[in-house]
Design a protein around this nucleic acid. Sequence first.
DNA 1: TCATTAAATTGTT
DNA 2: AACAATTTAATGA
Length: 224
Amino acid sequence: MPSLSDYLRSSIWARDLPAEALERVCAESFEKASPAGGYVCRRGEPVEHWIGVVEGLVKICAISPDGRTMTFTEISGGGWFGEGSLLKSDTRKYDAIALRPSHMALMPRATFTWLLDSSIAFNRFLLNQLNERLAQFMATVEYDRLLAPEARIARCLAMLFNPHLYPGIEARLHLSQEEIGFLCGVSRQRANQALRVLEDAGLLKVEYGSITALDVQGLMRFGE
DNA sequence: TCATTAAATTGTT
DNA sequence: AACAATTTAATGA
């Protein structure tokens, strides 16, 4: 696992920062670990940090009043989240839960705000990240309303390989079929069935507790 | 290292 | 939703 300092320095947004700015970011940020199943942060909490996943996998999710869970997206190593909440002065709107033992980098609000006020490069990065996220969620609504379940699941999974939002993602994703169901808005049974169709199409490989993407472009085009 | 057991995940109805 | 089968992880000799 990379050290916190190495992790911060290798983040995409850090590349165009002057050395002194990086020093300050490293000095003020800190690390936090969460066990599998543990909350990284919860809905309703005050938002004090921008959060980067150093290692592991974190889902951003909500739970319905009757207990059903739905997942918006999964953040893997290299990904950052929570900037939307930091830009507003409001409590956190969603839960973040570690799906595997995970390490997070926490950048305090003051540091984040300072970067925002002092670095055009950082602003450019954030604008791009917000734009990519908006595109992802617009696409999700589109797929949800226009596509058959198998194509929807294919594209939900393909979107996790967006290099802007999830720079450290690997072809093999350690997600159970139940979690894939939460992510794609289908039952575990439906996810199971769809995964086998996609495997037969040669687009991914299904294994115990994980899937391996073989053809992300193909997943994105499935059902056209 | 191997066998046993529990827990997690998947397959099926 | 429930149940059975399978895979992995944990434990202890």
